[in-house]
């Protein structure tokens, strides 16, 4: 009897927990999408805020988000891939590998507000980048480096040792082997790392408040990177918390939610595609 009761209780608790988890997600999606759909309009996403007409537009924030993603990825990819190549192809010293991996773990555990603070001290003040999208992007590079490093490292580990040996046997030097054999086969890790980074960049706000600022001016790429600007997440915070514009905030939230959904699906698709390709 006791065993039956125990089994039933545990089963109920499990079903209830799974139900709660899924209900939370469904509520978040439905609530945000519903509220967002009421407030989103073409005018909102295609203009900049105007004091003259008293309208709010989020086009500058959308562009800022794109600029900051581009700048972050361009700097972060070579660094992350290079670090991963060093770890898997060059590093002989086990202690050194441990230290590097420990450092990467530490980086991924540091809260984004601390990145924001150090980014402000180092990039904005010490290197004198001013409060700009570029300073924000550099801060995000440090934050996301462990992600790209880890995904690339994982895909490098799956490259069969025989490929490398074959290339060495044909007389290729180390660099040539890396360039022609190793790097081409870690493309899935790089792509996964990119997608995950983009997801984190889009969602980031605390690290950007004091590095990229929260202006809403319309700029081209290079002007934009050199000047202060809010990404979508930062704009959501500013509109909701500082200005009480909840309609705009919900419209942005719906866009962010949609992007999170797309990023999640594409990360799954990419890893699924490459897994299938490998097993063939």
């Amino acid at each position: 009897m006791n065993r039956v009761l125990y089994t039933r209780t545990m089963k109920t608790l499990m079903v209830a927990s799974v139900g709660l988890t899924c209900a939370l997600l469904i509520f978040m999606i439905v609530y945000v999408m519903f509220k967002g759909a009421q407030n989103i309009s073409w005018q909102l996403i295609s203009t900049k805020p105007s004091y003259l007409s008293g309208t709010i537009g989020i086009l500058p924030d959308i562009l800022n988000t794109i600029y900051i993603i581009l700048a972050t990825l361009i700097v972060e990819l070579p660094l992350g891939v290079g670090a991963a190549v060093y770890l898997t192809e060059y590093a002989q010293n086990k202690k050194m590998v441990k230290v590097i991996e420990y450092a990467a773990e530490t980086l991924s555990g540091i809260p984004s507000i601390i990145y924001g603070l150090v980014g402000m001290l180092f990039f904005v003040q010490f290197l004198n980048f001013q409060t700009s999208l570029f300073a924000g992007a550099m801060t995000l590079v440090i934050m996301n480096l462990p992600t790209v490093m880890r995904t690339t490292e994982e895909s490098l580990k799956t490259v069969p040792q025989s490929y490398r040996e074959g290339a060495f046997g044909l007389g290729a030097g180390k660099w040539r082997v890396i360039r022609t054999v190793v790097l081409p086969s870690c493309i899935d890790g790089v792509i996964t790392g990119c997608i995950l980074s983009v997801g984190r960049i889009i969602g980031e706000s605390a690290a950007l408040l004091f590095t990229a600022g929260f202006a809403h001016a319309l700029h081209g790429v290079f002007d934009g990177l050199a000047s202060s600007g809010a990404t979508l997440s930062v704009a959501l915070y500013v509109y909701a918390k500082e200005q009480g514009e909840f309609g705009v905030a919900f419209a942005i939230a719906a866009i962010l939610m949609l992007l999170a959904l797309i990023i999640n699906l594409s990360a799954g698709l990419v890893s699924g595609y490459y897994k299938k390709k490998r097993s063939l």
Partner: peptide
């Protein structure tokens, strides 16, 4: 994957 500001807003 949902950004923290969205949780904050809700």
């Amino acid at each position: 994957g949902i950004p923290s500001v969205v949780y904050g807003l809700v």
